[in-house]
């Protein structure tokens, strides 16, 4: 699974792109976020308040119950501020 981090999520995790293989029980966006939180202090800090974390699966906004799989591109980013 390919993970992408943008804006302050990239700054806090220290990662822009990474390839991960989560354990089999990680089936949804919510599961993935919970698993990522345990991967280190940077991740824990970045994902401390999920109210300000948006997730896109294969470049489509996704809710916590959205499924995720090994071939997915999952992006984590703050609420958008363009325009």
């Amino acid at each position: 699974m390919k993970l992408l981090y943008f804006a302050w999520l990239r700054a806090k995790t220290g990662v822009a792109v990474e390839e991960v293989t989560p354990p089999g029980e990680v089936a949804t966006v919510g599961d993935l976020l919970a698993w990522l939180k345990g991967r280190g202090p940077g991740y824990a800090e970045a994902l401390a308040d999920l109210q300000v974390v948006r997730v896109a699966v294969n470049q489509e906004y996704a809710e916590p119950n959205h499924p995720v799989g090994p071939d997915d591109e999952v992006a984590l980013f703050p609420p958008v501020t363009g325009g």
Partner: peptide
């Protein structure tokens, strides 16, 4: 402004800061 994935990082006197939605 609310859907396209852009983010602004502002440079101010106290350093750089991500703009909040």
């Amino acid at each position: 402004k609310t859907k396209a994935p852009f983010w602004k990082l502002e440079e101010g006197p106290a350093g750089a800061k991500w703009v909040e939605a």
